[in-house]
């Protein structure tokens, strides 16, 4: 049990997909202008990555290694289509808001990377938790960006005004430019944090 928790935790903190691996940052960032779209995107990715890890892990002995990448892509594309249809049916507004970016989950590098690095070598249950952890880390990172951008750019979180009338929203945060700049500082901040933690760890080792 502890082992599975470690796999999950690794995805959320140690190898947090956006800030540490810097993989798959592509299109996800476009939907972080508000908290709710970030959350939907995060959950969609989490679902796709977990389901794909399970599928890849289940079929890992059947698939010839030479054709594994096309097989992974087909599996991912199928799951993404499923998510598209589900969102279209049950949350049409969110489907509209995410637009083309939902379809683009197919080419998120992280999903393919997890299939290749983890799921193709491990059994189903660890793969499931790996997907869940990576997905949760991705969701948290997106949600953090989304909340900051919405808070500064519109003075609200999840559409609920929290700051009050005196605050004059900084429109730039909702524009793509603000998104880029914020992510730049967050990447730097995360790097500082990990370095600090490593140093603390090293000091503990000395003593």
């Amino acid at each position: 049990m502890k082992n599975l928790w470690d796999i999950f935790k690794k995805g959320v903190i140690v190898e947090n997909p956006i800030f540490v691996l810097a993989l798959s940052l592509c299109p996800a960032l476009a939907v972080t202008a508000s908290a709710i779209t970030s959350l939907t995107m995060g959950f969609s990715v989490m679902f796709v990555i977990t389901a794909n890890n399970v599928v890849v892990s289940l079929t890992r002995k059947l698939v010839n290694p030479k054709v594994r990448v096309p097989v992974y892509i087909t599996s991912i594309a199928t799951i993404v289509t499923l998510v598209q249809l589900l969102l279209q049916a049950f949350a049409p507004e969110l489907y509209q808001a995410l637009g083309i970016y939902l379809a683009l989950i197919v080419v998120f590098a992280i999903i393919l990377a997890r299939a290749e690095v983890f799921a193709s070598k491990n059994s189903v249950i660890p793969s499931f938790f790996d997907g869940l952890g990576m997905g949760a880390g991705f969701t948290l990172a997106l949600l953090l960006i989304g909340c900051i951008r919405e808070l500064l750019g519109a003075g609200s979180i999840f559409g609920i005004p929290v700051i009050g009338d005196w605050y004059d929203p900084a429109l730039i945060m909702i524009l793509p430019a603000g998104g880029f700049i914020l992510i730049g500082y967050l990447v730097g901040g995360f790097k500082m944090l990990t370095e600090y933690m490593e140093e603390a760890e090293a000091k503990k080792g000395d003593a």
């Binding site: 430019a177 603000g178 998104g179 880029f180 700049i181 914020l182 992510i183 730049g184 500082y185 990447v187 730097g188 790097k191």
Partner: peptide
């Protein structure tokens, strides 16, 4: 980090 800020 700086690449993102530049892109911004």
């Amino acid at each position: 980090g700086i690449a993102f800020i530049l892109a911004g």
